[in-house]
Write a protein that binds this DNA or RNA. Structure first.
Length: 988
RNA sequence: GCCCUGGUGGUGGAACUGGUAGACACGCAGGACUUAAAAUCCUGUUCGCCGCAACGCGAGUGCGGGUUCAAUUCCCGCCUGGGGCACCA
């Protein structure tokens, strides 16, 4: 009886489906475990071998936890709204709903092939009304709440209104407009529209005008994390700044809690680092400087003081005596009023220049540029007049848009000072070498009046205190993170449940949800940067918001919906979310570090604050799967143009032969001689075709018909409907394979091979380096595929895909099969009692599988299985007592074969309902073993030691050992080194 | 530039808190079975040296130091691959 994986896998998959084997109940009596994959965006390309890596890992862990007696929630769904489906619709005229559904079908088929234990009854699709009804509902929760800074949590906006009516906004600084102050009386006097405009500045989801990243090609705005190097992440189109009415999430209010939360969850250091950087919290101070203008009045100079001060933000108030210039952003509002008559023209020219430069250019070439305004700021401590410059390196959107330039301590300021010949004040003595700035905080200050001799680190507090006392400065915390743009001018997304009535945003009531996405004729953007919905008269007539929500809306809370997916009363029943609680293991790629993972953390915190769920971090542990890269293969085509002009077939040269040509270890003449035979052109004429021998081009070939680096020539000829059917191939040893050269008459030996070049790149269809899991599953079976993906190496490591080696795993499964069945005899397992040695093998494996699975070291677990099976085969052990527990363990990794073997052992139920075997140490303790003993680190011989002996006993044994006595040459022993009861070393 | 993370045989990778480095697998070489192939099984495989032989000797985890009886593991200084951030004052 052979291991017929195709039949086994097909049958069991059908059976699982028929029995609802993976249905998960909300059974509150059992301990729970929530294992989640980042749900995929169903693109048209389907899965390649990189995608299932994380899915397999989570599947193994889920099955393992289930065997351990947990109620495991392991769901799957689709992040179905988004740009690509809409782009596809524009290009092909297919409704996004239709193409998305098709793509989902393909995904599902591919996933089912691999034998995952998802409970498909809990599937969610973010584009379905039953789902996005609740996305809209949560949006309204955010819309109807504000962040109470003193309580550091979200609260209902009606509470805020009550507060305003009693006390005005004295206790609640307006996050959208810090200067806004009003009393209760003033509040009551405001018109309804004024009140609503003020409230909008407090809401967690709010609408406002702002600079946004506008992508013309995509016809929409993008969030900061969707813009990479000045172009759109998707498609790489240019992105420009534009002022538009937009919806935002006030995520900045959660900056501190998002930082604090990181300490309570298990994310990788790299991931925490990325989020911390993105939030970019910095502690500093805002300092006001008096601005003066100098006017020459005859011989003397006259000073005029400007009415408003220049406020800068700095993290280094201690360097205030080192300030040699101020820099303000080109967009700074003071420019108009402080620029002197003499500098007016230069400033205008400079601002025109800055405007001419796109963000892209600014980032690509960091030129030092700037212009003096003619005005001066006055150092409050010593009255020094400091020139105020404008430069594009200061960003308007961060801090106050103005900085104090300290060239001896800041690299950028230093370059600026050098470039414009501004004299540099040195306040750190020998720590500044005149060539490079030194940002140290540990130097003692010089040239700093009352701060002289103080270590910089300590001076910060002193200066801050002094500034505060003088009323010209205050401590200030800043964040790099901005509020998240939350609207898109696109069609394929959730409509906002908002109506605009006389310029006031009015939320729809809960009973009006879901606000259905209407059918449209055209997906092109509406007028003035509005979405396609603006083209629908009925929509506009109802004054509904024409923007839609971005892709991350639906994915910010999907993990909650899986818990209670069919609930029509609420997004997720509180009792149910209390039970399933946090995701215990979340597996996905790092690419969502500052997008999805930040937004979903914020939504969770808001829902927690508002009392809808009982936990404020969604993911307890995050495991990042590594990227599987493609390994592309190249063939080398000899001067294609000249060849086809001469009416000759394409010629491809093997990698090694190319190298030989480059090293001149074969001459081109040599090829020419051989080719003469083929083309019948005489040698001389051929040589005169110089162009033929000057160039070759690299072409990618499909990796699926390259075995390692050797090209499967027959498959290559059939590729792309025989495009290369007539190709001439020059092999590794120079031998030529013609289209009509039959395989049999081809020369033998390692030289007659066409060898390809290779390079590791991102896996993508256009590079012909994708490997489809379906073909591997077809060839080796799902179980082999699953185990092989795990065997490749640690899940969190990136690596190029290499199919070599999959046979080793396949062989393992066949060996496992042969412990049960013999080709001739059939069943060979017995009911005999296991020997001590067999039990030892089993229990060692139990311990190892348990440990490795718990710490997600799936590759070493697979190895442990292999060792176990090898050892059992060596022992010729076919006993149920050993095999049954083994099968239970294997089922997490290779579920199909396990079911089959489990059934063969005569069990009527499924192995899924079995319990993970219990490890018993008594079976693995060795009574005695030979251990090497070394003296001063050098191994001298082996001695026998009782393993369960105490260190004292071991010492006695060793002492008694004649050999030890002899090595010591009568010298007394200083000490023995013991490790876990074993004596490892003797020190003389 | 800053931060994170790796560097171990021909290859992918083991060695979890310092304790016989190279598990397991691929590849390769040799052998058995077979008319042959496939499948399967066995032996060898870090490098170098000595040898009839060995449970013989020496070196060895990117490089150079250090701590320790003992270092792939800890510390210091370099070199280098990958990832992230990048005018955030």
């Amino acid at each position: 009886m052979e291991y017929d994986f195709r039949k086994i896998e097909k049958e069991w998959q059908a059976q699982w489906k028929a029995n609802g084997a993976y249905k998960v109940k909300n059974d509150f009596t059992k301990p729970k475990c929530y294992v989640l994959d980042m749900f995929p965006y169903p693109s048209g390309a389907g899965l390649h071998v990189g995608h299932p890596l994380g899915y397999i890992a989570s599947d193994i862990y889920s099955r393992y936890k289930r065997l351990k007696g947990f109620n495991v929630l392991h769901p799957m769904g689709y992040d179905a709204f988004g740009l690509p489906a809409e782009q596809y619709a524009i290009e092909h005229g297919v409704h996004p709903a239709k193409s998305t559904a098709q793509n989902i079908d393909t995904f599902r088929k591919q996933l089912d092939n691999i034998g995952f234990c998802y409970d498909w009854d809990r599937e969610v699709r973010t584009c379905e009304p039953g789902y996005y009804k609740w996305t809209q509902w949560i949006f309204l929760q955010l819309f109807n709440s504000f962040f109470n800074r003193s309580a550091s949590k979200a609260e209902s906006i009606t509470q805020l209104v009550d507060e305003f009516e009693k006390n005005g906004n004295a206790a609640h600084e307006c996050p959208g407009d810090a200067s806004l102050r009003f009393t209760a009386a003033e509040w009551k006097a405001f018109s309804e529209k004024e009140k609503q405009d003020i409230l909008m500045n407090y809401r967690l989801a709010f609408c406002g005008y702002g600079e946004v990243n506008w992508c013309e090609a995509l016809g929409t705005v993008l969030a900061n994390d969707e813009v990479v190097n000045g172009v759109s992440e998707r498609g790489g189109h240019p992105v420009v700044k534009k002022k538009l009415r937009q919806w935002y999430l006030r995520i900045t209010e959660y900056a501190d809690r998002l930082l604090e939360g990181l300490e309570t969850i298990e994310f990788s250091e790299a991931m925490k680092e990325m989020q911390t950087n993105w939030i970019g919290k910095s502690y500093g101070a805002e300092i006001d400087f008096v601005i003066v203008s100098r006017q020459s009045a005859g011989v003397s100079e006259q000073l005029t003081t400007h009415p408003s001060p220049l406020t800068v933000y700095t993290t280094r108030p201690d360097t205030i005596f080192g300030v040699d210039f101020m820099v303000i952003a080109p967009e700074h509002e003071l420019i108009a009023t402080i620029t002197t008559a003499e500098q007016k023209q230069a400033v205008e020219e400079y601002i025109t220049y800055v405007k001419s430069r796109s963000d892209r250019e600014r980032q690509a070439e960091k030129k030092i540029s700037g212009c003096f305004t003619g005005a001066y700021a006055v150092n409050p401590f010593n009255g020094k007049q400091i020139p105020i410059w404008i430069s594009e390196y200061v960003l308007a959107g961060y801090g106050t848009g103005a900085i104090m330039g300290v060239p001896c301590g800041d690299e950028r300021d230093h370059k600026f000072a050098k470039h414009f010949n501004i004299p540099i004040t040195n306040i750190i003595g020998e720590h500044y070498n005149g060539v490079d700035a030194n940002p140290t905080k540990d130097a003692k200050l010089e040239n700093s009046e009352f701060l002289n001799g103080v270590v910089m680190r300590d001076a910060i507090g002193i200066v801050n205190a002094k500034l505060e006392e003088m009323g010209i400065g205050k401590k200030k915390v800043n964040y790099k993170m901005r509020d998240a743009a939350f609207s898109r001018q696109r069609y394929w997304g959730e409509p906002f449940p908002i109506q605009w009535k006389n310029g006031v945003a009015v939320p729809l009531s809960e009973t009006e949800l879901p606000l259905l996405l209407p059918e449209v004729e055209s997906y092109s953007p509406g007028p003035e940067g509005e979405g396609p919905l603006a083209n629908i008269p009925e929509w506009v007539a109802k004054e509904l918001e024409t923007n839609t929500m971005p892709g991350y809306a639906g994915s910010s809370w999907y993990f909650l919906r899986y818990m209670d997916p069919h609930n029509n009363e609420t997004f997720c029943d509180r009792k149910v979310s209390d039970y399933w609680n946090q995701v215990d293991l979340y597996i996905g790629g790092t690419e969502h570090a500052v997008g999805h993972l930040l937004y979903s953390r914020m939504w969770t915190k808001a829902l927690y604050d508002l009392g809808h769920i009982g936990f404020d971090e969604p993911f307890r542990k995050l495991l990042n799967q590594g990227m599987i890269q493609g390994s592309s293969r190249f063939i080398y085509r000899y001067n294609q143009v000249a060849n086809s002009d001469l009416g000759r077939p394409p010629i491809f040269i093997s990698k090694g032969f190319i190298d030989k040509l480059e090293n001149r270890s074969v001459g081109e003449e040599e090829i020419a001689k051989s080719l003469k035979k083929i083309f019948g052109v005489d040698y001389k004429t051929w040589i005169e075709d110089q162009s033929l021998f000057t160039t070759w081009v690299e072409l990618r070939v499909d990796v699926n018909f390259v075995d390692g680096v050797e090209l499967d020539i027959e498959a290559f000829r059939k590729w792309r409907n025989g495009e290369y059917a007539n190709a001439v191939l020059i092999c590794e040893n120079g031998e030529i394979v013609m289209p009509d050269t039959p395989l049999s008459t081809r020369g033998e030996g390692p030289g007659v091979r066409y060898i390809c070049g290779s390079e590791v790149e991102k896996m993508s269809k256009s590079k012909f380096n994708t490997v489809n899991p379906d073909t591997l599953v077809e060839k080796f079976g799902a179980d082999t595929f699953r185990m092989y993906e795990m065997f490749l190496g640690p899940v969190d490591q990136s690596k190029p895909w290499d199919t070599k080696g999959i046979e080793g795993v396949h062989r393992f499964l066949k060996k496992l099969w042969r412990l049960f069945f013999d080709e001739v005899k059939g069943k060979i397992w017995t009911e005999e009692k296991a020997t001590a040695e067999e039990l030892k093998v089993l229990h060692r494996t139990i311990r190892k599988i348990e440990e490795d699975t718990e710490r997600f070291s799936f590759n070493t677990a697979v190895s442990a299985f292999m060792i176990c099976v090898n050892e059992l085969a060596d022992l010729k052990c076919h006993k149920r007592e050993i095999l049954e527990p083994l099968v239970i363990m294997v089922t997490s990794y290779a579920p199909h074969i396990s079911e089959e073997l489990w059934k063969a052992l005569g069990n009527s139920n499924s192995v899924l309902d079995a319990a993970f075997p219990i490890y018993e140490e008594k079976y693995t303790i060795e009574s005695s073993k030979e251990y090497p003993v070394s003296i001063n680190g050098k191994v001298r011989t082996n001695i026998n030691i009782a393993l369960d002996a105490s260190p004292e006993q071991v010492q006695e044994i060793a002492m008694a050992n004649e050999l030890v006595q002899k090595w010591m040459e009568g010298k007394p022993l200083k000490k023995f080194i013991f490790v876990k009861g074993k004596m490892i070393n003797v020190v003389i």
